[in-house]
Design a binder for these strands. Structure first.
Lengths: 226, 226
DNA sequence: CGCGACGATGAAAAATTCATGATGGGGACG
DNA sequence: CGTCCCCATCATGAATTTTTCATCGTCGCG
């Protein structure tokens, strides 16, 4: 079995590395997120063990990036804390399983093997995000609501991408401004409002179930799948 | 280690039961959800292995009910399919881990032991705050009382967030004013009273057990979990 | 039992927050 | 160089929240 280990802490990396080799698995270590993403491109790994805390980017980003590239290699996340949010976020960004530090090496092994076993049965294709009948294909950069294809401008798409990445979750205007426009301040503009209105016009055509909700006093969100 | 196994399918139950006993663990089998909840009350178990598909109620309900009763025994869920939704929902209702059928018995064992080990260290905190059947999800900015979702305005939410952060503790009007409004003085207003009244109207609907208490001469508090 | 302080609450007024149409700049492309 | 599309800002009106104010209720104590 061929394992890609993305972990920047030498001690931890070493520990896992040696353990896996002892089990006759092939191991490649990446000590940063970007290195991990690059190495993963070769597509030769059976499973990726991914630490959440990396020097250059967060584990979620690595995960998300891989999935966006159409890579479906099973990912086992190592979370530092036992935070529910981390687990959920991990699963949502495309991880297949998580493991909380500190962990038994045997457990790591067991889960890895389980993942690989499972992934050989069927490969769930993703890269397609979806809420209700609203579908965003990040590969084709295409948006559909039901059978209708919707044409979005760059900014509109960026907002939708952000919102759909965590359905149900509320995003503040500031947050959206940050992610989509890259501003770090300027609360004197209402661009976000304007663009939300445009998105609405395209996505929530009258008669349809409204998906794009305003949460007064907080921001906007995409309706969570019930 | 003492295990409560909630599983109605005799074949699966038997398989796990025998395996665990072989490992010298104590096992009690419940073949329905309500039986499981009852048995759990004894509080003598180190971990609960919970099947999702039960004859009388869904695994989520069992899970939720236990958590509502203030039971924090680690729960390992057995999900039939590899559905992301199930995993997320499971975690949200208070499960600590999940396992997809079919699974290796060794994996079950490893995860169980990991859970128990972990739970002896510390109890996981999350973004979900709860008093009795009142739940505040800080991520979704959503409040529920039992099954009903409650819509709160920003200020109402802020107050509830403060109160629920320390159930049972009394918060003076001044304190609330400080935290929620950021005022550092001005004891000439009764906004706090007004908002408490509104919160009451939404949260403590007539017929329900009142959670929001007035402590005359001191302030307000959320009833502590008994 | 009656009084006074404290708290509850309805309703009006004020303020905030949003939605959206109109306007004009600017860049890409032919 | 003109046209088209995208982007950002502004202004306005509507919806909702927040605050204030007045009144009424209730609790505790003498």
């Amino acid at each position: 079995m061929n394992v890609l280990l993305v972990e920047d802490e030498p001690r931890v990396a070493d520990f896992i590395d040696r353990g896996l080799r002892a089990e006759n698995h092939g191991v490649t270590v990446a000590s940063s997120g970007s290195e991990g993403v690059d190495l993963a491109k070769s597509g030769e790994f059976d499973v990726i063990v991914l630490d959440l805390m990396l020097p250059d980017m967060h584990g979620y980003d690595v995960c998300q990036r891989l999935r966006l590239q159409g890579d479906h290699t099973p990912i086992l996340m190592l979370t530092a804390m036992d935070a529910l949010e981390d687990k959920i976020k991990g699963l949502k960004t495309g991880a297949d399983d998580y493991l909380t530090k500190p962990f038994d090496f045997d457990e790591l092994l067991a889960r890895m093997e389980a993942l690989v076993r499972r992934s050989h049965n069927f490969t769930p294709s993703s890269n397609i995000l979806q809420v209700a009948d609203l579908v965003l294909d990040r590969e084709l950069l295409e948006v559909r609501r039901g059978v209708d294809t919707i044409k979005l401008t760059a900014k509109e798409l960026a907002i939708l991408e952000l919102l759909i990445s965590a359905p149900g979750r509320v995003f503040s205007r500031t947050r959206i401004l940050n992610q989509v426009w890259g501003y770090s301040e300027d609360p004197l503009t209402n661009v976000v409002d304007v663009y939300i209105a445009r998105l609405r016009r395209k996505i929530d055509k009258p008669g349809r179930d409204p998906l794009l909700e305003t949460v007064r006093g907080h921001g906007y969100r995409l309706k969570a799948p019930s």
